[in-house]
């Protein structure tokens, strides 16, 4: 693959005891593109995500992130919070992990923690209430407000996140991840549980994030309509290995992919095949 990858995964291995969840997986995600990682249930997609975002330490292989300024970071050497803080990789979770007892706005404020910590002079300036801190806080609120507007939740800003309907929570989680101003956004099944209208809205949101923010997106998805419509590049996994990759059209027609889905789950296979027609 040519081009300008923001993320290169090189022979990634992940073992749990004797089980090999991810086996020598290599792929890359292009800058300012949407890359989809698909595969039947249990293929190891979320494990890959957890390796990339530092929740698991890979058993082997390398994950390199190259920033726009040419700086490159080996993600497998960083762990948990540093991936988001230093490497600017943000993620969402398969089963939404918002802060349910905090308002939508607060959720987005927490996401700006590191920037605000600096602005508050590690709390000291903030405690004294200096103007520079107030200025920074106002900017943070403005950023949060802008994102709430983008995801259509401005009127729910002061409601508890746990009280929002499911679809809103999904969008809020994406907005929260974007508030960390990431270079790479990793979405774990963002369309899961959404109805057709909501998932259409999600497509628009993701495309606009790519086009307007220039954020590269890596997503795991089961909803083939989302995958086929918005991805620039698709990587297909099964049993921890890559079985195909290419454009959505190429992947959809790949017999190996169809076989993998047929072998795993008939409905999904049909979804793959019907999604193009």
């Amino acid at each position: 693959m040519s081009g300008d990858p923001i993320l290169s995964v090189d022979r990634l291995m992940m073992r749990f005891g004797g089980i090999v969840a991810v086996n020598e997986l290599s792929f890359s995600a292009e800058r300012r593109k949407i890359t989809a990682l698909i595969g039947p249930n249990g293929a190891g997609k979320t494990t890959v995500f957890n390796c990339i975002t530092g929740f698991y330490r890979p058993s082997g292989g390398a994950i390199r992130l190259s920033h726009d300024d040419g700086r490159s970071i080996q993600l497998e050497r960083l762990n948990d919070f540093r991936i988001s803080k230093q490497a600017k990789v943000a993620r969402t979770f398969q089963n939404i992990r918002l802060f349910p007892g905090m308002t939508a706005l607060e959720n987005l404020m927490v996401a700006q923690h590191n920037a605000l910590m600096r602005a508050s002079g590690l709390t000291v300036l903030g405690l004294l209430g200096l103007p520079s801190w107030r200025e920074a806080e106002k900017r943070a609120i403005d950023l949060a407000r802008a994102w709430l507007d983008r995801v259509g939740l401005l009127d729910r800003a002061d409601d508890a996140a746990g009280n929002l309907p499911y679809g809103d929570q999904r969008r809020l989680e994406i907005a929260r991840a974007m508030c960390t101003e990431p270079a790479l956004l990793c979405l774990d099944e963002p369309a899961a549980g959404l109805n057709a209208r909501e998932s259409g809205g999600l497509n628009e949101l993701l495309l606009s994030i790519r086009n307007e923010q220039g954020t590269s997106i890596l997503l795991i998805e089961h909803d083939m309509s989302v995958v086929m419509e918005i991805s620039d590049h698709v990587v297909v996994m099964d049993y921890g290995v890559k079985i195909a990759e290419g454009t959505p059209q190429a992947v959809r027609d790949d017999p190996k992919v169809i076989a993998a889905y047929l072998g795993a789950d008939e409905e999904e296979a049909i979804a793959v095949m019907e999604s193009g027609t």
């Binding site: 929740f55 802060f99 923690h113």
Partner: peptide, 17 residues
């Protein structure tokens, strides 16, 4: 407070727990 709500999400947001 975010830590009380969800520690995993905190780490994903770059907070040093």
């Amino acid at each position: 407070e975010a830590l009380r709500e969800d520690e995993v999400a905190c780490r994903a947001l770059g907070i040093n727990t």
